Computed example of a mutant assay.
Amino acid sequence: MSTEKPNVSKGIIDRLKALDDLPHFPDALVKLERAVASDEPLEVQDIVQLIAQDPRLAAGLIGVVNTAKYTTGVPISDLSEAIVRVGINDVRVMAHAINYKSSFKSKPPFSEKHFMKHAMLSAFIAQALAKSLHVNKGEAFLCGLMRDIGVYLLAVEDREKYLEVIKLADYDVSKLSACENKIFGTHHALMSARLLQQWKFPKEIIMGVAFHHTPEKAEEAYKAYAYLTFLSEQAVFRLGFDNGIADITEEEREVPSEELLNALEYFGLAIEVYDELIQTAYEDAENMGV
């Protein structure tokens, strides 16, 4: 997966876990993931019982249904009604998004607001792209959402070191992984993948996240997820949003990079179609209050 020094990523995750700084994956979401993976038919009441175990998730879902995308003008306060309104298929991704936004106890040495918005927009865009690229929408959403969670892990591990990374990368996302490797001996994509392994996420998501900066190096079985995750991240940058740490150049917004064109070519997707898809996904996300 990487040429990192032995067990650097695992060591960081173990230390954060010991300090209680590792993001928590709620039991309710674990059970929801198992229920989805079992392929057994799920009824609304089954989902209600799972989500109700975590008041944060329940309150968050009720909040989602009262946003512009879902509201009919009549406020909803009942969890069953909220799940019916959102739809069983979307509850899983919404629950993950809500959990992500409240997972971190320690503040990072960069703009948390920019970082979270970038993650959420990337998730919505990944889901929208998945429809056209014949990739599982739920897994695509999670690839987009979770791809940079390793940035947070490195920054919480050592704030001063991560500030050094930011300075060294000089706000250029193409340099970020190399700078992380130089300072930490590992990089954020691998850190993200290690955490997702611990959380027992599907391998498609783990590998898509692990290789989202080098999708051409992913195993053939996981290339689609790696390229899709790369495209979802690049899309947010193309829309003009940095992630609080780095960005693409203005020139790359005007003239797509070779890496972006190669990713689009992998799917046979024209740049014009890509830009239309990401604009629509952005508008949907805005309607949901992202």
Results as ranks from 00 to 15, higher is better:
residue 66 N to V: 05
residue 46 D to M: 09
residue 44 V to W: 05
residue 98 I to N: 06
residue 116 M to K: 15
residue 173 V to F: 05
residue 258 E to A: 13
residue 161 K to T: 12
residue 164 E to K: 14
residue 161 K to I: 11
residue 96 H to F: 13
residue 195 L to V: 00
residue 236 V to T: 09
residue 106 S to I: 15
residue 1 M to P: 07
residue 203 K to L: 12
residue 64 V to R: 05
residue 181 N to S: 10
residue 20 D to M: 01
residue 227 Y to A: 07
residue 213 H to Y: 08
residue 283 E to A: 11
residue 207 M to E: 15
residue 247 D to F: 06
residue 213 H to D: 13
residue 222 Y to M: 05
residue 286 E to Y: 01
residue 136 N to E: 15
residue 134 H to I: 06
residue 36 V to A: 11
residue 70 Y to M: 04
residue 168 L to H: 05
residue 137 K to G: 03
residue 227 Y to C: 09
residue 110 F to G: 07
residue 192 S to E: 01
residue 51 I to V: 14
residue 38 S to Y: 06
residue 177 S to C: 11
residue 251 E to R: 13
residue 155 A to R: 08
residue 58 A to V: 03
residue 202 P to E: 03
residue 138 G to K: 02
residue 91 V to C: 05
residue 10 K to R: 13
residue 266 Y to F: 15
residue 103 S to R: 15
residue 91 V to L: 01
residue 235 A to T: 10
residue 10 K to W: 04
residue 140 A to G: 03
residue 94 M to F: 15
residue 189 A to R: 07
residue 65 V to K: 05
residue 132 S to Q: 08
residue 36 V to Y: 14
residue 179 C to S: 14
residue 42 L to V: 06
residue 1 M to G: 13
residue 122 S to H: 02
residue 248 I to G: 10
residue 54 D to K: 01
residue 16 L to T: 10
residue 64 V to N: 00
residue 250 E to I: 11
residue 103 S to F: 04
residue 131 K to N: 13
residue 269 L to K: 06
residue 188 H to M: 04
residue 113 K to A: 15
residue 153 L to A: 12
residue 192 S to H: 01
residue 138 G to D: 12
residue 215 P to Q: 06
residue 115 F to D: 07
residue 227 Y to M: 10
residue 170 D to E: 14
residue 52 A to C: 00
residue 286 E to I: 13
residue 273 V to F: 03
residue 126 A to G: 00
residue 174 S to P: 00
residue 167 K to Q: 14
residue 97 A to K: 14
residue 196 L to H: 10
residue 165 V to H: 08
residue 200 K to V: 02
residue 192 S to P: 02
residue 275 D to N: 15
residue 60 G to C: 10
residue 142 L to P: 10
residue 84 V to D: 04
residue 89 N to Y: 02
residue 88 I to W: 00
residue 182 K to C: 03
residue 41 P to W: 01
residue 164 E to L: 10
